[in-house]
Write a protein that binds this DNA or RNA. Sequence first.
DNA 1: TGAATATACTAGGACATCCAACGTTTGGTG
DNA 2: CACCAAACGTTGGATGTCCTAGTATATTCA
Lengths: 168, 168
Amino acid sequence: MDTSLSRDPIAEAQRNWEEHGWGDAAASMAAITAIMRTQQILLARIETTLKPFGLTFARYELLALLSFARKGSLPMNKASALLQVHPTSITNAVDRLERAGLVERSRHPTDGRTTLIELTAAGRTLAKRSTAALNAGVFSAPGFDAGDVDQLIRILGAFRRNAGDFQD
Amino acid sequence: MDTSLSRDPIAEAQRNWEEHGWGDAAASMAAITAIMRTQQILLARIETTLKPFGLTFARYELLALLSFARKGSLPMNKASALLQVHPTSITNAVDRLERAGLVERSRHPTDGRTTLIELTAAGRTLAKRSTAALNAGVFSAPGFDAGDVDQLIRILGAFRRNAGDFQD
DNA sequence: TGAATATACTAGGACATCCAACGTTTGGTG
DNA sequence: CACCAAACGTTGGATGTCCTAGTATATTCA
């Protein structure tokens, strides 16, 4: 699993693409494959950092989102929209967080369809601690060269806007 | 699930980070979150394109890798190393591809521990067709701005090298 | 007002990924 | 030559994601 190869397998795939006459798609294929692999590496680091807290990244994201909510609570459909995942993924995450005593479900006062999620005291504490750990262990030194972080934010921001994630 | 937000939720998260005094980690957090989301968008497009062929991206990657192998066959541990996924993921993919008649397992002639994977004729045909579909539907127009593809390859290549993916 | 439509959440299933543990085969070492 | 550590693949379990379908509640409109 964690063996270092002598050559970049993605660059190798790009060469294969070019040799087969798919030169117009080769570079994009390489970029997309690199995004896939980078996501995998980063996710593994994040999960390792969160493991001591009993959290996964999916659950952490929800916890962090709730900790920034002004009212301290959020409808499940809002969480689904903001985290940009399927509603059933939110249900799954809330189930586990609730079982761990970190959040609680409550009925919406006026709309009987919606369920509100709210942090418990334990949830709020864990959100702070795990965020500090992620900042220290991953975000403050992610391994990108200087200046590249801003490039990534720009490039991927444009891509996500093109993909319809947001208007702005 | 596919609702367009008025504002970029990742930029919003970055602002939250900065307001809480985590300015040194805010930009990296935003870049990493953007990578996660971009991967999700691209994977969804790829899976949609592959669905008519009865393939998932994981199975396609293995199929494509085999189609480039000189001998037409590859040990499972090689596939695991080149695709950079856990050996059990290869076992899973080969199980399904074999059941679909696209690949076959065979014993290594000299080393009794290793298993070789080989494309069937049907597998080779499907690899070609699905690659053409991906090139046409995703890779040839991925939605990145001009010049950004090369930037991505450079930035993510450096990251992966730092992460120990390859020497080069 | 009452029926049709839309929205919100949940249940069940398919798929992929990882980890831990296991059995088999190799190959180096005493 | 025998033994044991290492390598290889598989099984079983946990997690997350998505999809489809179903139930309950709101909203719209005839």
